[in-house]
């Protein structure tokens, strides 16, 4: 203990160290927070003993069936181009790919726009902000106006500082006009996105969520998504607002290091609910396996062109 204290004192021997240490003072957790953690672990322990055999058996069978279906579909020429298996991961299920290709056709039929602004109204729920509704408008220069619930409009900062709205594509962040220059052929478009399946998936859905991609680009994005590994069609569902849609799930393995040689793995499931009539994303949720409620939720209440702000 003395050694611990001495070494710590030695390292913290610099002007202002006392202030720094004091700035770290925090109140102890509320008893409810610790009780909630204990209860969550207890539930996880119960679930572990109750469902492990089922969880192990079912996915294995499905993986086999899916792989067989995908191979058969390619062999029969039933898909336009091969279902990729990026990074050795499981390809999108044949049914998920079929649905996403259907959405490519739906998106292609949407009307084009030359509106001045793009409006995004989204409800977000997460541990940090709890529940929040945000309405924003952005223009082709990337300026973003935020409109409060009472109609107050917040102007973007002047000059370059205010031009912040863009979307990741590969290693670049593209503006609205740059999106319009992306190829709308799926194969050429896929080249622009990361090869790594998880990064590619993430970038594709960010763009499908709130970007003003043209109908042709949006259609190609769905086609690329159909070829990206790891998605399963969960079927017809309703989102948190009761709107009907079709859910696509993707379960990803996340690894972190708890120190040298202490890599541990956990699983997350993201669900994307798509409106089959429009190809618009209605909602996305992110869950960590073992938890009952989503870690976060984005509900897209309105995404589309606007001629004026407010």
């Amino acid at each position: 203990m003395t050694e611990r204290t001495n070494e710590r004192d030695d390292l913290l021997d610099f002007p202002g160290a006392g202030e720094l240490i004091t700035a770290g003072d925090v109140a102890p957790p509320a008893p409810g927070a610790v009780a909630a953690a204990k209860a969550a672990v207890a539930r996880a322990a119960e679930r572990e003993t109750a469902v492990v055999p089922l969880r192990v058996r079912v996915p294995r069978r499905r993986r086999f069936l899916v792989a067989a279906a995908a191979v058969a579909a390619i062999a029969a020429g039933a898909v336009a181009y091969p279902v990729l298996d990026v990074g050795g991961e499981q390809a999108a299920t044949a049914s998920a790919a079929e649905f996403l290709n259907d959405m490519a056709a739906v998106a292609a039929d949407a009307p084009a726009t030359d509106a001045k602004y793009w409006k995004v109204r989204v409800e977000t729920v997460n541990g940090d902000d709890r529940e929040m509704r945000t309405t924003t408008y952005f223009d082709r220069a990337g300026r973003v106006w935020t409109v409060d619930e009472d109609g107050t409009v917040h102007e973007p900062p002047a000059g370059e500082e205010g031009k912040v709205k863009n979307w990741p594509v590969g290693k670049r962040w593209l503006t609205w006009p740059e999106l319009d220059k992306l190829p709308t052929d799926a194969k050429a478009l896929a080249e622009r996105f990361p090869k790594d399946a998880q990064s590619r998936f993430r970038q594709l859905v960010i763009m499908l969520e709130d970007s003003p991609a043209s109908p042709e680009l949006r259609s190609a994005l769905f086609e690329v998504l159909a070829d990206t590994p790891g998605m399963e069609l969960a079927g017809k569902v309703k989102d948190s607002k009761g709107r009907p849609g079709v859910a696509i799930d993707t379960t990803q393995k996340a690894t972190f290091t708890g120190g040298p040689g202490k890599d541990v793995t956990y699983w997350t499931t993201d669900r994307y609910i798509v409106d089959p009539d429009t190809g618009l994303l209605l909602e996305s949720t992110h869950k960590i396996r073992g938890q009952d409620i989503p870690a976060d939720r984005y509900t897209w209440q309105e995404v589309g062109p606007a001629d004026q702000i407010g």
Partner: peptide, 15 residues
Amino acid sequence: ADDLLAELWLQAYAA
């Protein structure tokens, strides 16, 4: 903090 504490214990338990 409260949510992250619960998440931490779940992940620690799983790992």
